[in-house]
Design a protein around this nucleic acid. Sequence first.
DNA 1: CGTCTTTGACCTGCGC
DNA 2: GCGCAGGTCAAAGACG
Length: 437
Amino acid sequence: MMGYRRTSLMISDQKLAQLQVELQRMNVENQRLRDMLSQVTNNYNALQMHIVALMQQSRGTEANQEHEVVQGKPEEKKQEVVPRQFLDLGRSAEADEMSHSSSDERTRSATPQTNMETASVKNNGNQENSSFRDGKRVGREDSPDSESQGWNPSKVQKLNSPPSKGIDQSTEATMRKARVSVRARSEAPMITDGCQWRKYGQKMAKGNPCPRAYYRCTMAVGCPVRKQVQRCADDKTILITTYEGNHNHPLPPAAMAMASTTTAAASMLLSGSMSSADGLMNPNLLARAILPCSSSMATISASAPFPTVTLDLTHNPNTTQVQRPPTHFQVPFPGQPQNFAPATAPQFPQVFGQALYNQSKFSGLQLSQETVPSQLPQQLHPAQQPSLVDTVSAATAAITADPNFTAALAAAISSIIGGANGNNTTSTNAHNTSNRN
DNA sequence: CGTCTTTGACCTGCGC
DNA sequence: GCGCAGGTCAAAGACG
C-alpha cells in the first residue's frame, strides 16, 4: 500500500516535470507566435501604406476616364476620398480597439505582446474558423471535390457562435434569390465566410472535370441559403462559389461584411438609380465604383440570365498590375429587387458614394467570402453594424489562421474599416466617410 | 452516439 | 417523348 503510494507520488513528480517541460515548450512557442504576429503587423502596416499609394495612383490614372461621375467634385478631392477613408478608418478603428485598454492611447505602434493578447483573446472560435481542417477530415476528402472543400467552413464554424447583435431579417427571407459567386485561390486553404454549411450533394458538371459540391446553410433551421463550390476548369487553383438565397438569421460579422458588400454591388446594379443600361453597359464604371482602387478587380456583366458582378480578387492588390488571381465574386441577381436597394438614392452620385462606403467591405468578402447578399439595407444601419470587437476578431482570426497573407490582409483591412464605419461618429474623418443611405 | 461527408439514385427543367 | 444536365435526397460510412 505504501509502496503504491510512493510510486504514485513519483509518477506525480514525473507528470509535474513533464508539465513543466511542456510549459516551457509552450512559452517558447508563444514567444515565437508573438514574433510572427509582430512581423505580420509590420507587414500589414507596410502593405497598407502601399495600397494607399497604389490607390492614389490608380485614382489618378482613372480620373481621366470617369471624370464627372463623382458629385462634381474636383478630381483632386476625389482622389483623396478613398485613400483617406482607408487610412482614417483603419486608424480610428485601431484607435477604438486600443481604447479598450486606454482611451487616450491612440498610437498605432502597439507592442507585439499587446497584439498577441488581442489576437488570442478575440480569436476564440474564429481562429478555428479559418484554420485548416483536421487531418482526418482532410484525409477523407480525397475525392475530386475535396479540393474545393479545402476551405469548407462547415465543421469548424460550429465553433464560431454567431453574434447576438445580428440582423433580424427573417421577414425578408422570402424567396428573393441572390447569387454571389466567389473565386478564391486555393492557396488560402480555408477561407471562411462566417456561416455554417453542410454538404448535401456533389455532382459532376458538364464542361468541368472538377465536381461541383452543394452546401446548405445550417446556421439556422430552415435557412434557405445554399452555395455551390466548384473549381475553375481553366485554373484549378481557383474556386468558384455561388450563393443562392437569403439567410433567415443573423449573420456573423464576416458574413455580414460580405453580404453588405455584395448587396451593395447588386443594388447598384439593379437599382433604378442608374439605368440598368448604364450600369450594365458600363461595367468598369460600376466596378470602379465598387473598387475604386483597382478597375481590374471588378467587372459587371449583363450576361443572362442574371446580371453578374464579378470581383476578381485573385488580383493582387499589392501590385500595380494584376499579378495573381484571388477571388472572384459573381453576383447574379435573379429576381431582385426592391429589397435590395430600398434605401439607395436614385441618383448615381449617391450610389457611387455608397459604393465607396461599401468598398471598404468589399475586400472583406475576399476572405469571409461568402454569404448572403441580400442584407445590405439592414446592415447599413449603424446600430446594426458588427461591433468593432467582432470585426477585429474576424480580421485577427483571418490573419492568424490564413496562410495566404494577402487574403488575410484584405480581410483585416476590410474588417477594420467596417468597424470604423460602424463607429463613424468617433472617427476622425467623418467628413469623408461615405454617404450612408 | 451525434454529426458530417460521400455517393448513387431520384427528381426536375430544358432542348430537340 | 426522350435524353441530358443540374440539383436534391437519403442511406451508409467515417470521425470525434
